[in-house]
């Protein structure tokens, strides 16, 4: 995993569950990375989605997290979509494989869940690094959503999606 030249011996990545006891760490990560103030209901839902919300440890320090939600469907049998609400890595820990580890974890579990048809998310149109990251993992860039992030200077976003092969 560590292809960018840090010492392999001191480069351990591990994923962990989110529970009420470490929720504070997740909040801290999201607050620092995303300029959005997530509501308490957001964090309540996070505790309910099981494998679709995770935090990542680098050398035993909590430094990254992903939170998804399942879109509700009109009928119980219809396939539903999985929305990646947040996926973020603290700045000093980027390009070390943590984002990939989290995304791969989500995709793996989404593929196992027969009811999930596709995984999608939004990225600011100007965030080229993120766009490249998701494209590398097989996401397709879809329509542009104007003013998706109303509070930001760059408020437009692209929708990206990955259809899961059943």
């Amino acid at each position: 995993m560590s292809s960018n030249g840090t010492r392999a011996s001191s480069h351990r990545i591990a994923l962990g569950d989110i529970n009420p006891n470490n929720l504070g760490q997740l909040k801290r990560i999201n607050t620092v990375i995303f300029p959005i103030n997530y509501q308490p209901s957001f964090y309540k839902d996070v505790l309910e989605v099981g494998e679709f919300a995770k935090i990542a440890y680098f050398n035993d320090v909590c430094v990254a997290a992903v939170c998804c939600r399942k879109d509700p469907t009109p009928e119980a049998t219809a396939p539903h979509d999985l929305y990646i609400a947040t996926l973020g890595v603290l700045a000093p820990y980027r390009r070390l494989g943590l984002g990939t580890a989290l995304l791969e974890h989500i995709l793996e579990h989404a593929a196992e869940d027969k009811k999930i048809g596709k995984v999608y998310l939004h990225v600011q149109t100007t965030n080229e690094e993120a766009l490249a990251f998701y494209k590398k993992h097989g996401f397709e860039q879809k329509e542009k959503v104007a003013n998706y992030y109303p509070n930001f200077d760059d408020s437009d976003a692209y929708r990206l999606e990955k259809v899961l092969v059943q």
Binding site: G5, S10, F58
Partner: peptide
């Protein structure tokens, strides 16, 4: 040589 992990600075 290799770079240190970011936790080293931390």
């Amino acid at each position: 040589g290799e770079k240190e992990p970011p936790t080293a600075l931390l």
